[in-house]
Design a protein around this nucleic acid. Sequence first.
DNA 1: GTCAGTGCAAACCCTTTGCAGAAAG
DNA 2: CTTTCTGCAAAGGGTTTGCACTGAC
Lengths: 144, 144
Amino acid sequence: MPRRDELPLDRGQVIDLLQAHGILPTQQRVEIAQVLFARPQHLSADQVLAAVNRERHLVSKATVYNTLGLFARKGLVREVIVDPSRVFYDPNTEDHHHFYNVDTGTLEDIDPGALALGPLPPPPPGTVTEGVDVVIRVRRAEGG
Amino acid sequence: MPRRDELPLDRGQVIDLLQAHGILPTQQRVEIAQVLFARPQHLSADQVLAAVNRERHLVSKATVYNTLGLFARKGLVREVIVDPSRVFYDPNTEDHHHFYNVDTGTLEDIDPGALALGPLPPPPPGTVTEGVDVVIRVRRAEGG
DNA sequence: GTCAGTGCAAACCCTTTGCAGAAAG
DNA sequence: CTTTCTGCAAAGGGTTTGCACTGAC
């Protein structure tokens, strides 16, 4: 199984990765995965759609949405919720957090060593913790 | 100016609060604010709409959305983004964080003393930190 | 009387869905 | 061949907008 922390992944590695997650590597899914795993980045569904079809029309809008949802359910990518108007997809599924620039609508990883998150409080009764998301909202500095 | 940490606020306190934030206290805005400041809670726009119009139709959908957006811009309430399908509005604007139950779609405050967040990392060049949101996603415990 | 706020309905935008045709094994 | 996937277009649902009416001061 390919190293997830060394992007980009070539076509063969992407196919291995899909299979390792129990996903049938169809042509469209491989195209989409290649876009996502081209580099560490945070793309919205719309950006993925545009990137996949940059040169010629390879994948429909419905398939992009369905596939991103599938990848997220299978743990291949992580959904990042910071903007009510769109979901971002992150190829990095390791525990890490984000800066969110509210002016540009872009995400940036926080260096994992730079944010100390103490022990988590116990979850409410009858529930178990599934994950933690930390978002530091930033904006353009005045007089920049 | 009313104490924001002692809910509920009565009608007069709500009016003072709106004025203190530079918001003209019209009848509809006061109705909406009273719902929000009735208790510490996290309501979606739709829930606010339903609550305001529980007994009789007092406020339209457009006005609820416009007013919640206004309140958020003026710093009267805080928007909580945890679910791509809707925004939650929190009357507590103090620094605090949330549990998000992915099964029920409900939010719960984290006791401020229970979560130690170390010093924040410096924001990316050219930006300044605006705020931090920590969301602990929880789900129903197995075999509950 | 003037300006801001409100209500309705239509418009918007991202996302999901239904179903017929195409591809994978 | 059978099952799953894909594509198109239409539906969906939360949110925003245009514009005439109402209300605040």
